[in-house]
Simulated assay, not measured.
Amino acid sequence: MQLHINTYGTYVHVRDQMFEVRRKLESGEIDKKPYSPQKVTHIIMATGTMLSTDAIKLAMQNNVDIVFVEQDGEPLGRVWHSKLGSTTKIRKAQLEASLSAVGVRWVKSWLLTKMDNQLQFIKDLKKHRPQHADFLNDKLTRMEALCVSVHTLEASRVTEIADTLRGLEGTAGRLYFETLSYVLPKEYQFSGRSNRPARDAFNAFLNYAYGILYSKTEKSLIIAGIDPYVGFLHRDDYNQLSMVYDFIEPYRIYADEVVFRLFSAKKVNKAHTSPLVNRNGEAGATLNAEGKALLVGAFNEFMDGDPVRHRGRNLKRSQILQSDAHQFANELIQKNERAKE
C-alpha cells in the first residue's frame, strides 16, 4: 500500500504505533485514518503537507520509503534508512560497467525493451482501430527500423555511441507519442511531449505518472544495492539520478498504459487539472487533488493488480521492478568476477 499525501495541510503522525493521516474537511471536522506500518510500502508527501519525526522513525524501522515530491509529481528527495542494504561489490561492479562494453549491452537492452514495448502497444491499439491501419502501419515500420539501428550499434563504452542512441530513442519516442495522440478522442489530442510545464492534460497526467515511477525505480535500485547516481547513458551531472533514468526505460510503458486508458475511456475531464504558469512565465497545466486521486488510484491498481507472466514467473508489475533490479545487480557482480578470472 502507498500513501499519497497531497491535500494541503494534511498531517501524518504516529498514534498507537500506527501511521495516522489527519486532514481537515470542508465541514471543518477532522478526518483521521490509521494505517499499519507493516502494510505501507511508500509515503509520498507533496508540498504543503506535514510529517512528524515520529512518523519518519516508524517508517525507517519498517523499511517504508518516504518521498517528497513537487505538486507535478517530480521527486524532490527521500528519507531512507542509513544501511546500504547490500554489498559494495555491486557498486564497484556498476562503476566498472559504466566504463566498459558491459554498460553498452545493458543500455541497448533497456532501450530496445522500451521501444519493443512501444511497438507492442501500438500493435494492440491497431487491433481495435482498423480505420487507422495505414497510419499505424507507417509508424510501426519506421519504429522497427530504429530498433534495428539500435541493435546493430557496437562500442567499447557507452560514451562512444551515446549521442546516436539518444537520437534514435528520441525519434522513436516522437513517433510513438504522435501515434498515441492520433488515436485519442479529439478533445484529448496533444502536440508532443512537454514537461515543466505540461502544455496539456495528457502530458500533465503522464508527467505525474512518471514521477511516481521514478520513485518506485529509485527504491528498487537502492534495495538491490545499485547506486542510483551512477548511470551508463544519462550524464552524471550534479545531483542527477542517472541510473534511475537509465533503468526506468523498460517500465515507462506502465505509466503510458495507465494514462492512455484513462483518456481513451474518457475518465478525465477539465475538473482534474488546473492552469499553471512556471517561473519562466510559460503557461501549462498541472494535476489538482481530484486529478491526482484519479491517477494514483488507477496506477496503484495497475501496478499491484493481477500478476503478469515475467521471466517464467507470475509477478505483479511492482514486483517485476524489484526482481529485475536484483537480477541486474547479480549479473553485474557475476560479469565482474568472470572478467577477473
Rank of each mutant, 00 (worst) to 15 (best):
R142Q: 13
S323M: 11
I248S: 09
P37W: 05
K316P: 08
E70C: 04
T88F: 02
R15K: 11
L241Q: 07
R174L: 00
V21P: 04
L295R: 11
T10K: 05
S318Q: 05
P275T: 10
D65W: 01
T179R: 04
L241N: 01
W80T: 11
F68D: 01
L99P: 04
N269P: 03
G284P: 05
E282D: 15
E26K: 15
L315Y: 15
T152A: 09
I253P: 09
A265K: 06
S242A: 08
Q2V: 07
K24E: 02
Q319V: 04
S27R: 03
E29G: 01
G73T: 00
W106Q: 15
G312T: 06
Q240P: 10
H151I: 00
D200C: 08
A155K: 06
V40F: 03
T7W: 02
S323P: 06
R252I: 00
F19T: 04
H310Y: 15
A224D: 15
I226K: 11
F328W: 15
S215V: 07
K92R: 04
A283V: 15
K219D: 01
T49E: 14
L276R: 05
V21T: 00
I5M: 01
L295K: 08
I212F: 01
T10N: 02
F260R: 14
T41Q: 14
E301P: 01
V296N: 12
L213F: 04
K292V: 01
R196T: 03
L206P: 03
T53P: 09
L184P: 04
I333W: 13
A224L: 14
V40T: 12
L146S: 12
A293T: 14
L221S: 04
P130V: 00
A133G: 02
